[in-house]
Simulated assay, not measured.
Amino acid sequence: MYTFHFNKEVLAMPTLRPSTAGDACMSRSGLYRAAREGRLERIARGIYLPADAPAADWDWIEAATRRRDATICLTSALAYHELTVVIPAALDVAIPRGSRTPATTGAIAWHQFDRPTFEIGREEIPIPGTDQTIGIYSAERSIADAFRMRGEVGYELAREALKEWLRRGGKPTHLMEIASRLPRAKSPLLQALEALA
C-alpha cells in the first residue's frame, strides 16, 4: 500500500497540483489516490492540500494558483485593510486587462484593470497556512479604486473607507498622488476630501 510522506520541502509547500506531484515524491496517479483516501483534500479543480494542512483561505489559494499576478482589490482589499465592515460575497481579484479570466470553482470575482496602472500600489502578502503569496493593493490604491469604480462598488463604500482611513491618520497627499495616476479617480476623491474637511 502506498504511504504518503511529506519531506521538509513539501511541508514548506503544501499546495499540490498534478504538475507538482513530483515535489511530493509521487506520481499523478499517486496524488489522485491520496485524495481518494483522504490524505489530500481537493480545494478546487486540480489543486490539493494535505488533509492535515493548517487552515487557509481556499479562494486566495485558488486565485494565486490560477494567476501569478492575481491581486486582491476593491471591497476585498478594503476589508483586508479593515477600512470597511462590508463582507464581500466573493473575493475581488484584479488581473491585467486583456488577460484570460481563469475558470474557478471558488467565490472569486475577477476584475480586469489597465495594464499601465496595474502595478501601482501592488504588494505581495503571504497566504496563511501555505508558502504561497498573493498580490493585494495598498489601502490608498484600494480607496482610489473604490472612488473611480464607485458605480460598481457604491459611493458609500468608498466614502466610508476614506473616512476610516483619515480617522487612522492617513495622509491625503499620498492618497492624491496615487489617485492622480489612475483614470477617473482624482476628481471624485478630491471632492470627497473637500467635503470631509
Rank of each mutant, 00 (worst) to 15 (best):
A12K: 13
M13Q: 14
T15V: 13
L16G: 02
P18G: 10
T20G: 03
G22V: 10
G22W: 15
D23I: 01
A24Y: 13
A24W: 07
C25M: 14
M26K: 11
R28K: 14
S29P: 03
G30H: 06
L31H: 06
Y32K: 05
Y32A: 08
Y32G: 13
R33F: 10
A35R: 09
A35S: 15
A35N: 06
R36E: 15
E37V: 07
G38L: 10
G38Q: 11
G38V: 06
L40T: 09
L40G: 05
R42A: 12
R42V: 09
I43E: 01
A44L: 01
A44P: 07
R45S: 14
R45E: 07
R45D: 14
G46V: 01
Y48H: 10
Y48F: 15
Y48P: 06
L49S: 02
L49T: 00
P50N: 07
A51C: 09
A51I: 10
A53S: 15
P54C: 10
A55Y: 10
A55H: 08
D57H: 03
D57L: 04
W58C: 08
D59N: 13
W60M: 03
I61G: 02
A63M: 08
A64P: 00
A64N: 00
R67T: 00
R68E: 10
R68G: 13
I72W: 02
I72H: 02
C73S: 15
L74G: 03
T75P: 00
S76P: 07
A77P: 04
L78H: 00
H81Q: 05
H81S: 04
E82W: 13
L83C: 09
L83D: 03
L83S: 05
T84W: 02
V85Q: 14
V85R: 14
V85A: 13
V86G: 05
V86N: 13
A89N: 15
A89H: 15
A90I: 03
L91V: 02
D92G: 09
V93D: 06
V93F: 05
A94C: 11
A94F: 05
R97P: 04
G98T: 07
G98Q: 07
G98C: 01
R100M: 11
R100D: 12
T101H: 08
P102G: 05
A103L: 11
T105M: 14
G106L: 01
G106V: 01
G106R: 06
A109M: 07
W110D: 01
H111I: 01
F113R: 12
F113V: 11
T117Y: 04
F118I: 04
E119P: 04
E119Q: 07
I120R: 09
I120C: 06
I120M: 10
G121Q: 01
R122S: 00
R122V: 02
E124H: 12
E124M: 14
P126G: 05
P126V: 00
G129K: 03
G129W: 02
T130V: 04
I134V: 07
I134C: 01
G135Q: 00
G135T: 08
Y137R: 02
Y137P: 03
S138R: 09
S142N: 04
S142I: 02
S142A: 12
S142D: 06
I143C: 04
D145F: 09
A146P: 04
F147R: 04
M149G: 13
M149N: 14
G151V: 03
G151D: 10
G151I: 09
E152P: 02
V153F: 12
E156D: 15
E156A: 15
R159T: 12
